[in-house]
Write a protein that binds this DNA or RNA. Structure first.
Lengths: 335, 335
DNA sequence: GGGCTAGACGTGAACGTTCACGGCGCTCGA
DNA sequence: TCGAGCGCCGTGAACGTTCACGTCTAGCCC
């Protein structure tokens, strides 16, 4: 019974160290630590104290190996700095916590990494994946093998499940509102990043054609500052646009600033409509009219779908595995 | 050699299933999957294909058990909905990703849970912890045993390491600025939640006494809407305050809205200063003067410290294990 | 043709837990 | 007095990998 070295600070104490120190067997330590029956109160306490002294904490790997541990799901998002994503992430974390899942988060925006890098990092660590992946969702599914993947905001092909948004509906709501307001010279400020942007841009173009208007399209990086600059440039030109539809609320907030800077009043000179419905919209001045998504619903829906896929009650690639959510027009001050 | 059932969708394929299907041994499968030498290109390819067909992905538990897997750190924050925390989390995730760590996130705000619940969920899953834990940091450390814990914004006692902020310095900057501006009737809008709030409130009180001013203190929940309501009530009263210092930027944004609603101009009638320096401050109107923290620095510092604790190069509870960061006054339009 | 090398592949052991048993000593009742 | 039962505790086996070897075959050179 050679007792191992107590705390070399390079090797963590194992259950055997505790057992040796207490002069009992593994199983008794297990009983003490997990509150199981079949152990006297005295030994239980003694073992617990010893475990604490040795700094013992059970290996999650060994435990997971034998018990088939709790599910952990990867969450891959492009940019925690854009308030849309934490709002979404928050609802995912909430729904996951309720199910006793845990969430491993990866943000592939800060490097210039692609979503695939994030998935590659996440894949060995998780049982399932939820993510805004852009166009890489096929390769992502390949990396995850048979484990379920729920892709947001991009048409599902290989991926097991997906949640997309009815942008034609959203665009129709916005354009109708602007034209009903009397706007005749409409600008659509799009994100300059492919992937998810493509869907929105195409929908706006299609609905504009249907409504008989031909908006000016311009592009900027999906940040407030980039949008601000883009609109500053546009407003400095001769284009006297009177309606502005923006890719998302964050960019819309930047646009609002630029219009203010240029001396144009909102909604007097120009009506502005954002997209997503993040809380930020209520804090800017004027408050932002927006195509709103119920963000709690989006996250919860993604987790619900994932649960279905994991349990097998929703077959991958089936009809039930791809859902479409709709935006709602929330009228505030800016349009 | 009884081959196991191929895909019962309840048991995942193991390396033995793949080996049996390919008619080779475990080790050969390992060689194929991990790109090791000592295997012919033909078998490598055959095994890889078979593995993909069977939906095999290696168990992270078994792998972790034998290899001592990558470090994963828990991140416990009160509320992803408050833009401060995603900004912080973003920099933590970035710094962790660079080190090939992964981040398990938990948000203890949405239930009415305490930070201890989050730590209890996280503890069995991670090797270390970073968190805004409020007053529960002692029990948190107890749950984590000998694994390092970095606590933010709260004085370290039991916890291995901590990062705190020099609120006396921040309060001095703000009050000096307000008084230099000629403000004589100052209000401090505090958070109504204990823990971290206590430090800021006490510092403001102390520095106010030092500066010879006696601000009115009022409280609200740390959200934009609660702050908006609180200031609306205050502004409707007879108190003609001309300076407003706010617990954080989010609440300040709400306060700005309330002042606008009540017809008071900012900074004309009342100067407003926020705290934290989140990007939101540049999007509200007027743009928010704030006591700014470099949020990238905060997250990076926390991860740096954690790395020191993990490697043992920074002893827990030592002088180097607790750091203090300072706010900087960023002048914008609101004060 | 014999020995040596390298390439391709297989086999015990180990990682740290928990599960399913099995065993020991005591008490109690018939 | 002895067997049954119970409280307390210990021991093999298993989970799915990888590591460190060991083995076999083919080919080559002298």
């Amino acid at each position: 019974m050679t007792s191992r070295s107590p705390d070399p600070l390079g090797r963590r104490a194992t259950i055997l160290d505790v057992a040796a120190a207490a002069g009992v067997s593994r199983q008794t330590v297990t009983r003490a630590m997990n509150g199981m029956a079949g152990i006297s109160p005295a030994t239980r306490e003694r073992v617990q104290k010893l475990a604490a002294d040795l700094g013992y904490s059970p290996s999650r790997f060994a435990k997971g190996l034998v018990q088939g541990a709790r599910i952990s799901v990867g969450l891959a998002i492009p940019d925690l700095t854009n308030p849309y994503f934490p709002a979404f992430a928050s609802s995912v974390v909430e729904a996951a916590t309720q199910r006793h899942w845990n969430v491993v988060m990866d943000d592939y925006g800060h490097g210039t990494g692609s979503s695939l890098d994030a998935v590659a990092r996440l894949a060995p660590q998780v049982d399932a994946l939820i993510g805004y992946l852009g166009e890489d969702s096929d390769d992502a599914q390949a990396l995850m093998g048979r484990r379920p993947v729920v892709v947001l905001d991009y048409p599902v092909s290989q991926a097991a499940g997906g949640i997309s948004f009815d942008y034609r509906h959203a665009a129709r709501l916005a354009l109708n509102h602007l034209t009903a307001r009397g706007c005749t010279n409409i600008v659509y400020l799009d994100s300059d990043q492919g992937g998810t942007a493509a869907g929105r841009g195409a929908a706006v173009a299609a609905m504009a054609a249907e409504a008989g208007v031909s908006p000016t399209i311009c592009h900027a990086a999906p940040s407030a500052s980039a949008a601000r600059e883009a609109i500053a440039v546009l407003a400095a030109g001769s284009n006297l646009f009177d309606g502005l539809l923006v890719f998302n609320d964050l960019m819309a907030a930047g646009a609002l600033k630029a219009l203010q800077d240029s001396g144009r009043s909102v909604p007097g000179d120009c009506a502005v409509i954002g997209m997503d419905g993040i809380p930020l919209g209520e804090l800017v001045t004027p408050e932002l009219t927006t195509l709103s998504l119920n963000l709690r619903t989006v996250g919860r829906t993604a987790v619900d779908l994932l649960e279905g896929l994991l349990s097998g009650s929703v077959p991958a690639h089936s009809k039930d595995a791809s859902l479409t959510l709709r935006h709602e027009l929330i009228l505030r001050q800016s349009a």
